[in-house]
Amino acid sequence: MDPAERIEAASKFLLQSPPGEINDVLNDVRNIISDDDSLQAGVLPALREYNTTQFTTAEVPGHQHQSIVSEAARVESSGDGEGEDEAASQDRYWDPRSRTSFRFDHLSLESSEPEPIEPDSESEPFRVALETASLQYLQAHYHDGVTSVFPVAGSSTRFIIQIVANKYNPTNFWSGRWRSEYTLDLAAQTLTGKILLSVHYYEQGNVQLSTTHAVSLALPPAIAVSGGAGAAAKALALVEAEESRYQAGLADAYAEMGEKTFKGLRRALPMTRSKLDWDRVLGYKLGQELTNSKGVFGQPA
């Protein structure tokens, strides 16, 4: 494998990291590649992709809350930066809640260089209403979640609501992540979204839950930009109903897999409801082999 192929393979490993374990995976990969210089530059795109698709949360400099670092949060570079500034300008994200943009380091996960940013005045009032409703929803259903609501650039009728919740418990060998994202399109009157769950349990083993759920539904007419706070609350009520429904469906799927699939793979005990009598198993088989002068093995034992 040439160095470029090794970096590519390392990048693939990083993108598969379970919740909260990116640093452990990075340490393993460092040891395997054992060439820090080429690694650090080479895996930056993978780290960026991992952080933005996994809805990594960042401390907003100068504020008491966290915001989500994702593709929707990326601040388009103004284009005056050239060459060396390219990577840095690529890694500016913004928190609409505090109207702050910041630089995010995808390796150290630190945010810096805060700057005030002016949101689009047309979409901002409804975005704020959605954000308030989303924060309320977060309080009601998540123990430890972060939400960000972004306007879609160039549109005053499309908004992206993102939610992420993480629980890392390395002392008890488990971690979990819930991600959901919804695009609210008030012109098309649709809500499309996805829920992604990953859980890792790794005490003397490696067990993972991984789920995908995509949804697309039509909005009731009451949800419009002119509807203000009431319409925003209704939109989040749709999100709440969808997520609760999915969670209930997941509980049912668990029950079904436990009842049918698990039992269908291996019984708890044989049909006889007792363990095997190994002396009889052997006696029976040996006896059978003696009577059949030609067994499956071609020769009698």
């Binding site: 259903h141 123990h143 819930w178 698990f262």
Partner: peptide, 17 residues
């Protein structure tokens, strides 16, 4: 216990019905 208990508990720990 792990597949149907532990991983399920983590999900319900992340989001409450």
């Amino acid at each position: 216990e792990v597949y149907f208990g532990k991983t399920r508990d983590v999900v319900f720990d992340l989001r409450s019905l």
